[in-house]
Simulated scan of single mutants.
Amino acid sequence: MFDSRHIRTFHEVVRTGSYSAAARALGYTQPAVTQQMKALERDVGSALFVRVGRGMRLTEAGEALSRHAGSILDSMAAAREQLNAITRLRSGRVRLCAFPSAVSTLVPEALARLAASHPGIRVDLLEDEPPASLRRLARGECDLSLAFSYPGLREEVPEELVGTPLLEDQLVVLLPARHPLARRRAVRLTDLADERWIAGCPRCRANLLHECAESGFVPDIAFMTDDNLAVQSLVAEGLGVSMIPSLVLNFLRHPEVVGRPIQPVTRRRIVAYVLREHLRIPATALLLEELRTVAAHKTGC
């Protein structure tokens, strides 16, 4: 591994033709230049210059190094500039993985805020449900993952991940607008024991089964889909009822369905996860902060 200072000094010696001229150009003493060239020759394992009369010429090793020295210094300067841009948040890239209802609610506003304040930061968006999204994060396929969990279900989070709670999203029951219970301000799960149900993703289905079991019945699950628009359409046609997050009602509102709070109250917990070492990456930390800001606003709505 070559010392960048030695390469720079070597390049100046070649350009100016002598140690003394290189020392003047760089603001060094001539002995300092001599010591640097001796150190570089030790790293190379060969002499770089030979004396010819009062001057010097490059050896074969020196010629080879000289052909690359300029490009090495240019690459280092470009790398330094790129790193400065990243650390000063003029540029950067973050790979975000999020579940569908977060992609439709939390994520767009957070990305808009980030683009307004730091337009040089690029965010690549992936969509996946937990726990698959957390496994992708642990494998390094993304830099930040949004996931949700339910209080009654066991959750396994890889130990190398750090979670930042964003909000608690209350669940509601989705009913056809003409359903007799649609007139109530809240609905007890036990009142829905004889209904057909439309379940969502595997984690949401597991929570539905758990909540209904806690209320003393097994739900008749007629359909399963993680498409929120499809869920609302099925409910609107009277084909079943569904348990959905409040966030979904923020971006989908079928005219023939209504959402009512569930009793007892059930909430899912939304958390942003990163690999521990990624907390020190400026662009990732900034996106996480924007997500926290947006989530706080929605919590207060």
Score class of each variant (00 low, 15 high):
F2H: 08
I7L: 15
H11L: 11
H11P: 06
G17Y: 03
A23N: 03
Y28N: 04
Y28E: 05
P31T: 10
A32C: 07
V33N: 00
Q35D: 11
Q36P: 01
M37I: 15
L40H: 09
L40Y: 07
E41M: 07
D43H: 10
S46E: 14
V50K: 10
G53P: 03
R57T: 14
R57G: 08
L58T: 01
T59R: 03
E60N: 06
G62V: 02
S66I: 03
G70N: 06
S75R: 14
S75Y: 11
R80F: 10
E81L: 15
L83T: 10
A85G: 15
I86E: 13
T87W: 10
G92W: 00
R95L: 07
C97S: 13
C97I: 13
C97A: 12
P100C: 13
A102C: 14
A102Y: 04
S117C: 07
L126K: 05
P131R: 05
L134F: 11
R135F: 12
R139K: 14
C142Y: 01
L146E: 03
A147G: 09
A147C: 09
S149C: 12
Y150K: 13
P151N: 11
P151W: 08
R154S: 15
E155Y: 05
E155D: 11
E159A: 15
E159G: 12
L161Y: 06
G163H: 09
Q170L: 09
Q170G: 09
V173D: 00
R178V: 14
H179M: 11
P180I: 09
L181E: 04
R183V: 15
R183Y: 08
R188L: 10
L189A: 09
L192T: 01
L192V: 07
L192Y: 04
R196H: 09
I198G: 00
G200C: 08
R205M: 08
R205K: 15
L208S: 02
H210N: 06
H210A: 05
E211D: 12
C212P: 00
V218K: 10
I221H: 02
A222C: 07
F223A: 11
D226V: 03
D226S: 15
D227M: 08
L229E: 12
L229S: 13
V231N: 02
V235R: 01
A236I: 04
A236C: 09
G240S: 07
I244V: 15
P245Y: 06
S246Y: 08
F251S: 12
R260T: 12
R260C: 11
I262S: 00
T266F: 07
R269S: 13
R269N: 11
R269V: 06
I270P: 00
L275K: 13
L275D: 05
P282D: 04
A285W: 04
A285M: 06
L286D: 02
L287E: 02
E290P: 02
A295T: 03
H297G: 13
C301W: 08
